[in-house]
Amino acid sequence: MICEIVAVNPDAQYSGTTYTQTVCCQVENGTEISVFDSTPPIVDDAMRGNRIDAMLLARARDITISSEVSRTINPGNGTDCVYVGEVVGVASVGTSQIQALEVNVDIGTVYVEPDADFVDTVGAVESTIGELVTVDAYRTDIVDFDAA
């Protein structure tokens, strides 16, 4: 997802080393979301103002098959966010190769780590391709990026 780095806020630091941080990103429609950047952080403060193509992994609290027709991003408190979009595929994401849903939210793709209840309900996550879903994410991580 194309976004601009607005702010980088250290969360956990020790002896001058940042272990985790929150990155505020503005996506193409102007919405600002906060994403978690964990050990080791991949974004630094010098990137403020830069546009990147970010790979975002939403950690789902809840996923429901949706009747919503508009694809949206609704930021919550901290790194909480609600995403509404169409499942367009399944991919292995991040260094731990998490099997994630690829969800098109109109302005880009968010990868979603499904919660256990959703997997129990739908069976194979591949069966959700083409479905519209609402994802209530308790946290969204930035797991990789390229220059935009």
Rank of each mutant, 00 (worst) to 15 (best):
A7M: 05
A7D: 15
N9T: 07
P10S: 01
P10T: 07
D11N: 06
A12D: 09
Q13L: 06
Q13G: 03
Y14C: 12
Y14M: 09
T17F: 13
T17V: 13
T17P: 00
T18I: 15
T20C: 10
Q21R: 15
Q21E: 09
T22M: 10
V23D: 01
C24F: 06
Q26N: 03
V27Q: 04
V27N: 08
E28H: 10
E28F: 07
N29K: 09
G30A: 11
E32Y: 13
S34A: 14
F36I: 02
D37V: 12
S38P: 02
T39I: 13
P40F: 06
P40L: 07
V43N: 10
D44C: 13
D45T: 05
M47L: 11
M47G: 00
R48Q: 04
N50D: 03
R51H: 11
R51T: 06
R51S: 07
L56Y: 09
L56A: 14
L57W: 10
A58T: 10
R59S: 07
R59L: 15
A60V: 00
R61S: 14
D62A: 12
I65V: 15
E68F: 08
V69M: 05
V69G: 08
V69K: 15
V69I: 15
S70K: 04
S70M: 13
R71W: 06
R71Q: 08
T72S: 03
I73G: 00
I73E: 05
N74H: 00
N74K: 03
N77G: 04
G78H: 00
V84Q: 01
V84E: 06
G85D: 11
A91K: 04
V93F: 10
V93C: 11
G94H: 03
S96D: 14
S96V: 08
S96R: 12
Q97H: 13
Q99K: 10
A100F: 02
V103C: 02
V105K: 00
V105N: 04
I107W: 03
G108K: 02
G108H: 01
T109V: 15
V110L: 05
V112F: 02
V112N: 04
V112W: 02
P114S: 00
P114H: 05
F118A: 12
A124P: 02
E126G: 08
T128L: 13
G130P: 09
E131S: 13
E131H: 02
T134K: 15
V135I: 05
V135Q: 01
V135P: 04
D136Q: 14
D136P: 01
A137P: 09
R139S: 10
T140D: 09
D141I: 09
I142S: 04
D144L: 04
